[in-house]
Amino acid sequence: SQMADLKSLAKHMFEAYLKNFNMNKTKARAILTGKANIPPFVIHDMETLRLAEENLVSKQAVNGIQNKEAEVRIFQRCQCTSVETVRELTEFAKCIPEFINLDLNDQVTLLKYGVYEAMFAMLASIMNKDGLLVAYGNGFMTREFLKSLRKPFNEIMEPKFEFAMKFNALELDDSDLSLFVAAIILSGDRPGLVNVSQIEQMQETIVQALRLHLHSNHPDAIYLFPKLLQKMADLRQLVTEHAQLVQKIKKTEADTFLHPLLQEIYRDMY
């Protein structure tokens, strides 16, 4: 009966994942492999960036950035997507059994430290070696274009591509990712947690469900579970470096603005 409970938990988290995230790996892979009805518009230089801004992103227009330099405009739009994903992750976290019964301060702490790790894990779903989907899958921005931006903006995405290529080699699907993301959120060693043992117990249950699910979903990948645990450590490093870069941009780039929600998350993070 314990195995049935874990299977039912995996199903529940998968449903919560599909319900709360606008984009998922199945949708993204269909677009990236040319199976979508309309192929994404490719952004590979300043001209195609302008065209995309005029035609693709009117719904997510950001006030006052039209006349700023391209690097700043891209940075601001990345923030919009991040804010939206934090909102989706918060709703997803609330679907984890017992999460909403945790001390409210602990809920805040788990999200503060977990959202960027979860976000970079899910970002891999919309990436391939040549670029990533933008504007809800309607655009594809090339990796080379991002590398061609001026410093320090050209340093933002490359580490995420490097992580994504290794992560995507594990060939996880959305059902695996739903449990992986839940396990990231329920990390009992985040600074300042009050009820550590309660969170550790919750994570243990999710991790058991993940191990069982991987066993049936990837019967031939015998080292997948330990590899995924290692990825959790890699994601922490990736977020630490990202947070340092954002602080640097905030200090040196007078024209950039950090969204209040992201400011809250980055403040006193590491």
Binding site: Q60, V62, C80, V83, E84, V86, R87, T90, E91, K94, L104, N105, Q107, V108, T109, L111, K112, G192, H259, P260, L261, E264, I265, R267, D268
Partner: peptide, 21 residues
């Protein structure tokens, strides 16, 4: 901690709460 994370706190309490982009 809640005081320092007002928007996160609001998102946790109320899913319909708007977050301006």
């Amino acid at each position: 901690l809640k005081e320092k994370h007002k928007i996160l706190h609001r998102l946790l309490q109320d899913s319909t709460s708007p977050v301006d982009l």
